[in-house]
Design a protein around this nucleic acid. Structure first.
Lengths: 232, 232
DNA sequence: GTCTCGCGGATTGCATACAATATGGGGACG
DNA sequence: CGTCCCCATATTGTATGCAATCCGCGAGAC
């Protein structure tokens, strides 16, 4: 009864997977925490079998680490991971965004509405960061889907599904937030104009601005700051 | 007795996973084929539990498709997938190769030896395509590992692990084969010179040549040929 | 003749019982 | 007093039994 709410999908493995995944991404399960099959089974109200299945899926996605005969623990992430993730994003997302400008697949109305709704949520006091996060992820996914390359969507998703990154907006300053929201509208305009280079460029700015914002929130004393690479 | 050979690793789930994965990549399991848990368990000599675990892992990696309450079937791939895969590769691998030129992480001796051994295998009559495939994959992995971005290695691996691509060399003409082998040596030289642009450029040529070779081997009558995108 | 309903076999999904393995502490020995 | 071994315990890995679901086929009604 702990989590199932009213209408469970009839699939124990699925709700187990969704529950644990959500708990990890929200930070409810701390990095390094051991996930015992028995405990999870008892809490969620299923047997160990679907729990094992869920843990294997999460391990394949890189959210948890599976040590044979030892158990499963939540993966831990640091600034080095942030650099890996964002250097990849700043390579893939601008490219996909540029493609999306010319495929004609982009649903500009939907993307525009998502950007508008993010503006609304941001104006609330206090802003609903979870809602903004969800809208932002939907926006980025929508852009990449318009690239026409389904694997690109999956790759970027698998890379950004990390607590630090997933909750990007929790770390934004008001100014960074405003700039990010403005980028979204500019991206829609670039896509509408069918200008691949513009679209690519805005998305690159968007991603790299996020990179810097997150880096500033996660300084690691003693570790040398690695500046985002760039052309002189 | 079917597959376990002498020294099984003591882990039924692991050997099951490895067995099925190898069968799919080698083409032994055809696209669209249904993988019944019971059958696999009987053939491999384990119970259904580790089989289910292996199938879930393979599903998470995209090698098989899992339909709830129906079963698992081998994913089927076509020319469209080839285009997705190679447009991604021609974006990621050259970038990673360029990075590898300046990180100083590249083990040039090992990479050089891999390229040499591929030459040797190619000179045999007939060439051992499986051996060449293995060496080639090790070479590409080695280059990407030298980029210093571990996630890049995983991403590219997950994308190229498709039968059509995995056995790239089975479709090469002698000329394409020679050119490909020459590229490997040139990549090592570019890395040794620390010239990122050279390294990136050679890898891009290498990947795009492979793209064209594979496309020519998998023409689909009736479907319009989509030329690889390129700048004028 | 065609459409619908219901039944039977096959297969997956889940739960539970048992076996294998790692961990930590206590005691004997040097 | 320190070290090593051994066993108790917790946890994972595997096997098996049962319930739920899906698919195909055939009988019956219109």
């Amino acid at each position: 009864m702990t989590q199932d709410a009213g209408a469970d999908a009839g699939k124990a493995a699925e709700v187990t997977y969704a529950t644990i995944r959500r708990q990890i991404l929200s930070g409810e399960r701390a990095s390094g925490e051991w996930l015992r099959e028995g405990d999870l089974a008892a809490v969620i109200g299923v047997s160990r079998t679907p729990v094992r299945e869920a843990l294997r899926r999460l391990a394949a996605e890189g959210l948890v680490r599976h040590e044979p005969n030892r158990g499963v623990q939540v993966e831990d992430w640091g600034v080095a991971d942030l650099d890996e993730i964002f250097s990849l994003r700043s390579q893939l997302e601008p490219w996909g965004c540029g493609l999306a400008a010319t495929t004609g697949l982009a649903d500009l109305d939907t993307l525009g509405r998502l950007a508008d709704r993010m503006d609304e949520e941001a104006r609330r006091d206090p802003p609903d960061l979870d809602a903004i996060t969800e809208l932002n992820n939907a926006f980025h996914r929508g852009v990449l889907e318009a690239s026409g390359n389904g694997r690109l969507v999956g790759l970027v998703s698998s890379v950004v599904e990390v607590p630090l990154v997933w909750r990007t907006f929790s770390h934004y300053s008001p100014e960074a937030m405003r700039r990010s929201l403005a980028h979204h509208h500019e991206i829609v305009q670039a896509l509408a104009a069918g200008d691949a280079e513009w679209a690519e460029s805005v998305m690159r700015s968007h991603v790299r601005a996020a990179w810097v914002s997150l880096r500033d929130e996660h300084p690691v004393a003693g570790q040398p700051r690695i500046e985002p690479p760039g052309r002189p």
